[in-house]
Write a protein that binds this DNA or RNA. Structure first.
Lengths: 280, 280
DNA sequence: AGCACTCATAAGCCCAGGTTATGCCCTCAT
DNA sequence: ATGAGGGCATAACCTGGGCTTATGAGTGCT
């Protein structure tokens, strides 16, 4: 609409009629009590408020597109030419974006996705039930080749009210290890990295079964949590969570694309890897 | 639902009935061809796919909440106890998050928002039509006091297909200044910073009237653009755009909270500033 | 066995949001 | 001036998604 200069044209482009578009804008304006478009007999133009609303709305649409890309991949079980198996963190935070980008390059390639931990991903690749996998962790599972596509940093976060939120002097390994934390249950990849980096951990403050649960516990002030940077980006930006500086601990893990030894990535797999910067 | 362990309970918490919730999940499962919840006579639990879908959906909900927070602020023209005036970039990318956080702390404080450039913001503050402002730029407008709440870095971005996308050796000031770029029109804050940092610029490749327009031109491969880090975070994460390393140029500007000289922030204003880390 | 909990199904209602059919207003070209 | 055309608003009607209530069926605890 901003691009086309008229409600009617915009409506046609969206496949609806002019009165429908007009009515929608109008009803939104009634709800907000603010004019969103300047109407004139020669066309319409967004107001400042309209531009603002448009941009906020765009973010919803983008989130919805990511959802849709993911949902498509869950749906396309059969007949898909690119079968991806990925660990939860990657499937949650990175894959939808990659799928959108991939769809732009290979519009006709049906992609299917299944999520599971490293062992499951490895199994699917070795069985030929997946063409490429993505795993997080310290090494490449046996029988697979791989390439690092990104680094995932773990961060210590607390709610803004917590004492550590104001902390400027970095936490050391000893102090972190001695503090009860909100953690995923035993066996999660994130927790494994943390244990590897710190040796022994204090008894957890809470043990929860999903990243999301850990995050909301931290947001509501239950205590400090250690989470992937990917998972808390939004919350940190909005200051619902605050990152605590840490020194002397290597809280990093590689995210890798993997495939069966010898299967050099070609075709759609290679295309996908090139999107993730991990072309072998 | 994950938290409550049963569809019926979840439904009640959402203010709908159990059949409604059940039907919705069921219809989504039909569309996706994947089970999202494991049902048992003793309750239900999310499957892996269900957890994935839940997380993707959560991001839509969060975007919608940000939209809503912004929309509320546009609506609450009268009777609002905290009137905020902000520049476009801040209103677009940062304020919704701050408003959500503020609502958590001061649930009963009605907030109103108006957007405009630095001069407009300053005018509203000096006229008493706003209680606090946020501006981007090099200095504090006359008659106002302020505090830096964040730094906004400008980044050079190109589509992944562009030659610069593979570039490892940083761009210098001279090369950047000599390259035709996609820019906002003369007079925009972003462009002013760029001109200040580089001196003269090459004739722009394109001049567009909104950040969004510049971004989509860059995404579609029209050429390199210079944009706020805030504006391209998503695109860079999804590799729809690639950041180009730059050296020897200070592409940074302060984001400031401002208020009339002498009006020390108290009450809701102070609360808002504390969320943005800029307590004076 | 019976109760208490779960989820599924069926039948009916409501309304948001669409469509078609107009009308009014402005501008521009004749 | 005046008629044509583009652009938005209004009115009346229709459809379907999504809700509700009412009920059934399976399971485990007492």
């Amino acid at each position: 609409m901003a691009r086309l200069g008229s409600l009617g044209r915009a409506a046609r482009e969206l496949g609806i009629t002019q009165p429908a578009a007009s009515g929608r804008i109008r009803s939104m304006e009634r709800q907000l009590g603010v004019a969103l478009v300047d109407r004139s007999p020669r066309g319409s133009r967004l107001t400042e408020a309209g531009a603002l609303v448009t941009d906020w709305a765009r973010r919803i649409v983008e989130a919805a597109e990511a959802f849709d890309a993911g949902a498509q991949a869950l749906r396309d079980r059969r007949d898909s030419r690119l079968r991806v198996a990925a660990s939860m963190t990657i499937a949650e935070y990175l894959l939808p974006g990659w799928l959108i980008a991939l769809r732009a390059r290979l519009p006709d390639t049906a992609v299917s996705l299944s999520a599971g931990n490293s062992a499951v991903v490895a199994g699917q690749l070795l069985d030929g039930r997946a063409d490429v996998g993505f795993v997080e962790g310290v090494g490449v599972p046996a029988g697979l080749d791989g390439v690092v596509v990104a680094q995932d940093r773990l961060v210590v976060v607390v709610a803004p009210g917590h004492a550590w939120a104001r902390r400027r002097v970095p936490l050391g390994a000893a102090e972190l290890a001695a503090t009860p934390l909100i953690l995923r249950e035993e066996g999660s990849g994130t927790r494994a990295v943390l244990e590897a980096a710190l040796g022994a951990l204090a008894r957890p403050l809470l043990e929860l079964s999903s990243t999301t649960a850990v995050k909301s516990a931290a947001v509501s002030g239950a205590g400090p949590a250690v989470l992937s940077e990917l998972a808390v980006g939004e919350e940190v930006a909005a200051r619902r969570l605050v990152g605590v500086p840490v020194a002397g601990v290597r809280l990093q893990r590689a995210l890798r694309a993997v495939w069966p030894v010898g299967h050099v990535p070609v075709g759609p797999v290679r295309e996908l890897l090139s999107l993730t910067r991990g072309v072998p």
